[in-house]
């Protein structure tokens, strides 16, 4: 495992996502209202790039005809067949224990610390006064 700087926090505003490739692996990083999460950018069903999917809430119902929307912004739907995944955990809604996407640990680190290493900042120039999203892969 190594740590990789993937974006400045200011470049990944709340509600947005970005696709990065680290060690050859496609990964999508999400900013969920200031919390960051990362998932393999490949749907376990037929391999679609999740990054292109819709971010939504979770729709549930207590009885036919009633709709509750919760967890707004925390669900990503695959751009192909629409399977829903929890951005926080990578678990699918339909079969959370068996169908899930591998998550990667993410942290936010100040540039001042990053410049001391041992971080890999391939394409992101690190400045001391900024905060950065760091992925452990």
């Amino acid at each position: 495992m190594s740590k990789h700087v993937v974006a400045a926090v200011s470049d990944l505003p709340a509600g947005s996502r970005r696709q990065v490739t680290i060690k050859g692996r496609p990964i999508v990083v999400f900013n969920l209202s200031g919390e960051f999460f990362a998932l393999v950018n490949r749907c376990p069903h037929q391999g679609a790039g999740l990054c292109e999917g819709e971010i939504t809430g979770l729709v549930t119902s207590d009885r036919p005809g009633e709709f509750h929307v919760s967890r707004e912004g925390e669900i990503i739907r695959c751009p192909w067949h629409g399977w829903e995944f929890d951005i926080r955990t990578g678990q699918s809604w339909c079969d959370p224990s068996r169908i899930r996407i591998r998550p990667y640990p993410v942290e936010v680190a100040p540039g001042a610390r990053l410049v001391q290493g041992p971080y890999v900042a391939e394409t992101v120039p690190v400045r001391i006064e900024e905060d950065y999203v760091v992925l452990e892969v």
Partner: peptide
């Protein structure tokens, strides 16, 4: 799996 949001009571 694809369309259940239309009928979320099918839980």
């Amino acid at each position: 799996r694809a369309l259940r949001r239309e009928v979320p009571w099918v839980d």
